[in-house]
Design a protein around this nucleic acid. Structure first.
Lengths: 155, 155
DNA sequence: CAATGCGACTTGCATTTTGCAAGTTATATT
DNA sequence: AATATAACTTGCAAAATGCAAGTCGCATTG
């Protein structure tokens, strides 16, 4: 179900259009936090390890919401809090994120153990099904840990 | 075979590291042109439909080469020309690009016919194998057309 | 073989986006 | 009532992007 064209686009190429929404250093990290770490709040994204600044975070959340990738809902029990969630469109980014994860881990020195990644690569379907299951059932259990900060497995 | 950490990284997360290399509006489009359209030269990238400016293009080509994703080689028969090619690391981005393509086509109004995309989604393995075959055999035949510019199927 | 053209870039700004530090506002907690 | 917390704003500096024009080898052509 395609959305409306939101402004003048560079071209009709789906890759180009996707990149107009996601092609920056932060958007997909926020989506990663929502998808695999079970984060829901501004504060959590902020403390996510990559040190996004608050104005950029606010801006990205707004744009992702405008693009229909996430929703923002005020928390029932604590009205200061806003809970962000992926939409169906958002959870459909799981394959993109997974491939980016596999590619990075294969070709760069990252904090993720190769064995774990290769296992995921060998079972893409199951990993994606599990990510979607957690999303569907609102299960906030992280799918993955926070692969290595600095040089040890701390972050 | 992981490369060396090239500067200070935000975190050890493979997704974050991938995005440090590819997280902008242009890099993956250049890779798309190399991978599915069979482009090799500066000029071709420039006329690719999304109107990248020449300084940015030069900068991205340099960074992609520094990241080991592409190589630049002077043309034997015309020494003005530089031929760019994907490395193995570069062609390994095919799954990322494919997922971005599928996602964009499913959720946005793009120039790509849904039927074509769904067929690709149903045969990811073959599509990827074919992309890799063309790369391996230096076959420049485009894998895909230039899905719709503006509103008609021209671009 | 001089003149013109082409391919791959530079360079010089103007504009836009990012990043940083310090607020602000509306709840919650103590 | 005082303090803390969550989610933002705001102001400003720094970096990235975009645009138009220019450079510099080569290659083609009359």
């Amino acid at each position: 179900m395609p959305g409306k064209p939101r402004s003048r686009r560079r071209s009709g190429c789906p890759v180009s259009i996707s990149l107009e929404m996601l092609g920056d250093r932060w958007s997909l990290l926020i989506i990663r936090d929502l998808m695999v770490r079970g984060f829901r709040t501004f504060k959590e994204f902020q403390e996510s390890g990559e040190e996004i600044s608050t104005n950029i975070l606010a801006d990205r959340l707004e744009k992702l919401e405008a693009s229909g990738i996430i929703t923002a809902q005020e928390d029932k029990t604590d009205r200061r809090r806003v809970n962000y969630r992926l939409t169906e469109k958002g959870i459909d980014l799981a394959p993109v994120l997974l491939e980016l994860l596999i590619w990075g881990a294969r070709h760069e020195k990252t904090g993720a153990p190769c064995a774990v990644i290769e296992k995921m690569a060998a079972h893409r379907g199951e990993v994606l099904a599990e990510a979607r299951r957690r999303w569907r059932e609102h299960d906030p259990t992280p799918l993955l840990p926070r692969f290595g900060g600095g040089d040890a497995g701390l972050n």
